[in-house]
Structures are given as C-alpha cells and as structure tokens.
Design a protein around this nucleic acid. Structure first.
Lengths: 252, 252
DNA sequence: GATTATTTGTTCGTATGTATT
DNA sequence: CAATACATACGAACAAATAAT
C-alpha cells in the first residue's frame, strides 16, 4: 500500500536477465504477485519480456538465489517473500556484550606452550601448516560456582608472546591484553558453535563426567585488515553455560 | 581435536552435470586440482567429458554454489576449498538470515500429536501446566546431504491446528505457514543453544550414534504483543551443522 | 488407476559480449 | 591489439514431476 518501493534495494546486473529479474521483483514488492501466489509461467514471461527462455530462467534463478521465489517442476514458481531479506538487528549478540560477559568471569591459567601447526590445527585456525603459535589453556570460572564453566584454548602469534608473563602473573582475556600492549585492535570476530564430547583430559580439568556433551565454541579475531590476531577454542559442559540470543524483526 | 572424519558424501544429482560436477569434486579432493590452482577451461572440460558447454557450466555452477570454486571472466576457475563443507553452517546475524537459511533446507514431517503440558514441557515453553499444544516433529535436510542435519520439535497453539493438513501435504517452516494463513507476524525471537546427548530414539531418527553429542537449540517466537506464537526445540548432531556468527566491532 | 496436459528441469548447438592477460 | 576464458543470449528438443481429466 505504501510508497513505491523507493529503493532499488538491489543493484540490477546490467544484463537482460537482470532487467527481467528486477521487473519481476518490482511486481512482487508492488503486490502484483503476492506471497504464496504463483508467478507467470516461463513461457508467459518469454512473451511478456520478449526474451528467450534461457534469459527468463536466469532471471528466475536470480530471484531464487535471493530466497524470493521457489520453483517446482510440474507446479510452477511460487512467491516466497515480498522483498529481499531486510536488515534485522541482533540486539543481544554484539561484541560489546560478549566482552561484557567475559568480564564477569574469572580466568585461571592452566598451561602455556608453543605449538607448530599440524594439518588439524592449520584447518582449525585457518593458517598454513608449520606456522608457530603460542597456546594458552585457561579455565573460565563464574563467581560463586564451584566448577569451572569452560576450558578455553587460545592461540596467539608468537610475536605477542611477551604477554605470556603478564598472563601468568594475572590471568585475563588475552585479546584485551594484546590490545593494550601492542596497540592493535580487533575489528571482526567470527564464531562457530558446535557440539562435542569431552574426552578424559578435558573432563578432568572441567570436573565433568567423561564423554558428557559440551558446547565447542571456536572464535577467530581479526584486525581491520583481515589479519588474524587470535583464535580460541572453548569447551563448555552441559548445564553450566548456554548461549542465548534475542532478536527482533525490524519494523517494516 | 576430533575430526568429523566421515565425509558425508554429497548425493550427486542423477544428471549429466551432476556427474561432471562430482567427477571434478573427486579431482579436487583427490589433489589433482589443489586449492589455489586453476581448473581446466570450460572448453577443455567439454572435450574431456564429451558434454556441451552448457552442461559444463551447470556443473561449475554447482561447485560454485557450494563454495568450492570461483570463476572470473578472462582468468579462469580457481579452486577455493578441497572439500565441500560436510556440515551446514548457519551464519546468523539477523532474523532475515535465519529465515534465509531455513529456505535452503528441506523438511520432512515425522509426526504430529496433541500434547498437554506437564511440568517439564511447561518449563520448556514458558507456559502454564495443562496448556494444550500441537507438536510437530520434522527432520531438516540439506540438499545433497544423505543424513538429516537435525530434528525439530515444534509446538504451536491448537488455534493454528488448521495448518496441520497443509504441512502434512507439503512440509515447510511452521512459522511462515502460520504467518501466511493467520496473518500474524512474529516480532521477536529468543534462542538458547546448549549441548545435549542424543538418546536412542533421537539417534535413530537422525541416523546418528546413540549417546553422541548434539546442539540443542530452543527458540521462542513472539508476536508484537509479547504473546508466544510458537516454540521449537531442535537437535543437531555433531558434524552436520554448526552455528556461525560474525560480529564487527562498531567504529567509535 | 491410467492418461493427458502443463510446467519446470536438463541438454544440446550456436553466437556474441566482456573482462583479463 | 590480439588471444583467452568466462558471461550472456538465442533456439530447439526431450525428460521429469505434477495436476487435472
């Protein structure tokens, strides 16, 4: 009902299929093809736009790749959404809140060692085999809880090795110490959460049953240039920690 | 670190381009075309496989869509990764991306039943004991993966029960079907991720080993008035799915 | 239940455009 | 400028999935 979809939100490729795709996109957001309705058949679109079937199919593929329509043989092409995914804001999951969380925990250093990346570690850290890293292992405690909430392995470049003594004397999050000491800032964080079983060694350190389940959280910290600064791998056993987010759909 | 080990082989589409794509995939994972190397040109692949250029391009598109190669005009096609990600990665920074992800998966209905909330269910859903819910169980598949990536229990209010027949005929995400049919919109999503062990029943449905670890994702969907619309509890076994987020530090 | 019409999916062939070396 | 390689586009035919008869 409201204003002509002002934004050509997406840049149309300067191609024939791009023009067809965006004409259809305008029809969809304009309500001509409502969500759930079927689009014209490929043959009809050929006629309407005066292009070949190949071009029509390229246009529809463009819309499919963006999640706007779905196509099924024998049925047709159905509209899935009125507009390309709008930006919704994640209210809870910001870097600031993440760091806030780590401030409410206490760290205890387990050990530090130098590691040369084998194939598995190289894959984990996204580095070349043979690269040298300094690995810290630390237990993360929450005030008032007897058992640690997690065990974190953190790898830092050996250039930053000077912080090892600092950390030994007073454990803290490595990334903030690196930022202080070396004046670098991390600009981006990638995080991957997967399930894992605790092996005997991890279980003992965490005071958890062996072969019990845990969250395995892998984080990569990058600076503004996309250079990796630090990586960490944490194990958080069942019942002590869960990862909670809250998202709002932005008003349209 | 444990490796997911068994490469969940991608099912090749029973098509000519599917066979070409998987032959190339075998070459890539076999080391014939290492990461960073250039693939043969389209013309060379035509000759090698005895197919048309169109089919070669469809095969390469298949590999591109899976992030294995990249193609640039005037340059060629370059290998980006040695193996297809054998697990689905949910890269989620917004509700939009979450919905986008669910579009790339296929749902298969397991069963539907009416449930009266006992104490445990009431706690899980945040409702009163004795409330009636309709519970769907669905397996979530990723195109090209043999085993399901997860099993999702979804509870909806019995008022929305009319969608049961729809879903039975052609499974889809419940929340979108409810939005279509009843004109309600969810405005907020709360999500909680924790680790869990698969019991025998879940393991059987998921074709996973019993007592293997999984991500347990609980979601609550609310409308604008804070009324709960739907809740879901999903189990995603190790090696098939991971939860991925990317955060940037806000410039100050 | 079988048949037929409809619609998308796959595959060939060919030609021209565009980006890069 | 020329050669190379992917990108776009036209035309045609058959296959597969589905819906309607």
């Amino acid at each position: 009902m409201q204003a002509p979809a002002t934004a050509a939100a997406l840049a149309a490729p300067p191609t024939r299929y791009g023009r067809v795709a965006h004409a259809l996109l305008a029809d969809i957001s304009g309500g001509r093809y409502p969500v759930g309705a079927r689009m014209p058949t490929e043959a009809e679109l050929e006629a309407r736009f005066g292009v070949s079937r190949h071009t029509v199919r390229a246009a529809i593929r463009y819309l499919r790749e963006r999640g706007l329509v779905t196509a099924r043989a024998g049925v047709g092409t159905t509209v899935l959404a009125q507009r390309p995914p709008e930006k919704a804001v994640l209210s809870m999951n910001s870097v600031a809140e993440l760091l806030q969380f780590t401030r409410h925990t206490r760290l205890a250093l387990v050990d530090v060692e130098t590691q040369r990346a084998d194939a598995a570690l190289a894959a984990l850290l996204g580095c070349d085999r043979g690269d040298t890293w300094l690995r810290f292992r630390m237990l993360r405690h929450l005030r008032g809880m007897a058992k640690p909430i997690g065990l974190v392995h953190t790898w830092v470049r050996p250039e930053f090795g000077a912080i090892a003594e600092d950390i030994r004397r007073r454990p803290s999050t490595l990334i903030s110490r690196i930022e202080e000491r070396f004046g670098v800032k991390f600009a981006e964080l990638k995080q991957d959460i997967s399930p894992a079983l605790l092996d005997a060694g991890l279980a003992r350190l965490l005071k958890a049953p062996a072969r019990s389940p845990a969250l395995r959280i892998l984080r990569h910290y990058y600076d503004r240039d996309g250079q990796i600064l630090q990586a960490s791998l944490g194990y958080y056993p069942e019942g002590r920690f869960s990862y909670n987010t809250r998202m709002r759909v932005e008003a349209r």
